[in-house]
Amino acid sequence: NKFNKEMRNAYWEILLLPNLNEQQKRAFIRSLYDDPSQSANLLAEAKKLNDAQA
């Protein structure tokens, strides 16, 4: 399933972002589970926040 693969990839990438705190990571991951079809958008948002907090 395409969404499962995308979601899994986004999950691990979000977990490994160094500048997000645990609460932020949990919020993004919760959103991933709520709507896996938004994986790419959520990952992009997480990366943007990660860069902003660098």
Rank of each mutant, 00 (worst) to 15 (best):
A27K: 10
Q23E: 15
I29G: 04
N21S: 05
S39Y: 15
K47Q: 09
K25S: 03
A44H: 06
A40W: 11
K2R: 09
N50V: 02
F28T: 03
A54K: 01
D35I: 09
E6F: 03
N1G: 13
K48V: 14
F3T: 03
N50I: 01
F28W: 07
L20F: 02
N19Q: 06
Y11N: 02
S39F: 14
F28M: 09
S39M: 14
L32E: 00
L42D: 01
N19R: 09
E45T: 13
Q38G: 09
P36T: 05
K25N: 00
Q23F: 12
R26E: 02
N4M: 03
Y33G: 03
Q23K: 10
L43N: 04
A40Q: 11
N19A: 05
K5F: 02
L42F: 10
L49S: 06
N41D: 13
M7G: 02
Y11T: 05
D51M: 15
A46R: 00
M7W: 15
K48F: 14
K47A: 06
L17Y: 07
Q38R: 10
N21G: 09
E45A: 13
S31N: 12
L17T: 02
N9P: 02
W12N: 15
L42K: 10
N50Y: 01
N19W: 08
N4E: 15
S37N: 10
N21P: 04
R26V: 14
N21M: 14
R8A: 11
A46M: 01
E6K: 03
L32S: 01
D34P: 03
Q38P: 02
E6T: 03
S37R: 11
N9M: 12
E22V: 06
N19L: 10
K47L: 07
M7Q: 13
Y33M: 13
L42W: 13
W12I: 05
A54E: 14
N9W: 06
K2M: 09
L43V: 06
E45G: 10
L43P: 01
L20P: 00
N50P: 01
D51Q: 15
A40R: 06
Q23Y: 11
I14E: 00
E45D: 13
S37L: 08
A54V: 11
K48L: 15
D34L: 04
K2N: 14
D35M: 10
N4I: 06
R30T: 10
L16I: 05
Y33V: 06
N19S: 08
E13R: 14
N21V: 06
L32R: 00
E45Q: 10
K2D: 12
L43W: 03
E6H: 02
P36W: 06
A54I: 06
N50H: 03
N21L: 05
P18N: 12
A54G: 14
